[in-house]
């Protein structure tokens, strides 16, 4: 599973946006309009950062120590409270539902970062299945994520939980069926 800690270390260079080098970016802005713009900037930064490092599940405590929320050059960092506010904003409708807290709402320790939402992943999967003529064949979830056939696909190595979620959206639409025992699930696309 691509937990934040493991993925954050395996990084090639990620180019931060110019705002990242702007100290006020790291403290909440009092003006509502400025605040909203700031949050939206943070949201897109978190998304592109997670996309670059292929982080699906962001563990807040890890992220706070990572370059994402900690600009060591500026000696500036986002506080845990402010980081939560950013993710909160991302989970809201205003923030485009680009995140989702995991676990009880009071905890807010880790969150799914939807740099691609499950239904968007579903579209990618569907396009791949369609393009490779695998409609109607049984595929294991393992081979979708880890198989040799998907090595050059974007969803290769994707989080199993996210895969299940995105397949779930296809199941709801009647475009796929997931079956089989826990940890041995297969999926059949229609």
């Amino acid at each position: 599973m691509a937990t934040a800690s493991s993925s954050l270390t395996t990084s090639s260079m990620f180019t931060f946006p110019p705002t990242y080098s702007f100290p006020p970016f790291f403290s909440p802005q009092p003006n509502a309009q400025t605040r909203s713009a700031q949050l939206s900037k943070w949201s897109s930064l978190v998304q592109s950062y997670c996309r670059h490092h292929r982080i699906f599940k962001l563990l807040l405590s890890d992220a706070l120590e990572s370059p994402l929320f900690h600009n060591s050059k500026l000696m500036r960092r986002l506080s845990a409270h402010d980081a939560k506010a950013v993710v909160d904003y991302m989970t809201s409708k205003e923030g485009g539902n680009r995140a989702e807290w995991i676990g009880p709402a009071t905890e807010k320790a880790s969150a799914w970062i939807w740099w691609r939402r499950p239904e968007e992943w579903a579209g990618v999967l569907e396009a791949w299945v369609d393009g490779t003529g695998q409609k109607g064949t049984v595929l294991t979830l393992y081979e979708l994520v880890e198989g040799e056939a998907t090595e050059n696909q974007e969803f290769h190595g994707m989080d199993m939980e996210v895969l299940r979620k995105s397949l779930g959206t296809l199941v709801k639409k009647g475009k796929a069926q997931v079956f089989g025992g826990e940890g041995q699930e297969g999926v059949k696309f229609f």
């Binding site: 064949t137 049984v138 595929l139 079956f179 089989g180 041995q184 297969g186 059949k188």
Partner: peptide, 9 residues
């Protein structure tokens, strides 16, 4: 389908 899934698993 289930048999195929078993084999693939």
């Amino acid at each position: 389908d289930r048999a195929i899934l078993d084999m693939k698993n």
